[in-house]
Nucleic acid binder design. Structure first.
Length: 102
DNA sequence: AGTCTGACTCGAG
DNA sequence: GCTCGAGCCAGAC
């Protein structure tokens, strides 16, 4: 069977190296989806159990984490990012230094 | 089948 | 730099 859009997205996310982040729109573009950034968010929400996809390296184009500040998911993502040396300030990441470009 | 919603983005004020 | 409105697509009701 052909790769679905979700699988392409997961593939792109898997290609993101440690210590780097990408925006949803960037992932969508690299996966050949154009500007459908929302689809990326939904695809990540559908991740199967036992996956090895670094979903936490995917953030908004302005550097802000996609979850509401204070939520569990937010705390989890922030923790994982800082663990890789990515600075998270006030719920945001300085995109200028950590943004991944192929 | 119609409407609403969401892990988004962009342009304008 | 922030807020608001519109555009997008698939899934849930």
């Amino acid at each position: 069977m052909e790769p679905t859009r979700e699988q392409k997205i997961w593939q792109v996310v898997l290609a993101v190296p440690e210590g780097r982040v990408v925006s949803y729109g960037q992932v969508a573009d690299m996966a050949g989806l154009g500007r459908q950034a929302r689809f990326v968010g939904r695809a990540l929400g559908k991740l199967p159990a036992g996956h090895s996809v670094p979903w936490f390296r995917v953030i908004r184009t302005n550097g802000q984490i996609a979850f509401p500040q204070g939520s569990e998911a937010f705390a989890r993502q922030k923790n994982l990012l800082e663990k890789e040396g990515i600075e998270v300030i006030n719920g945001r990441v300085p995109m200028g230094r950590f943004r991944w470009t192929p």
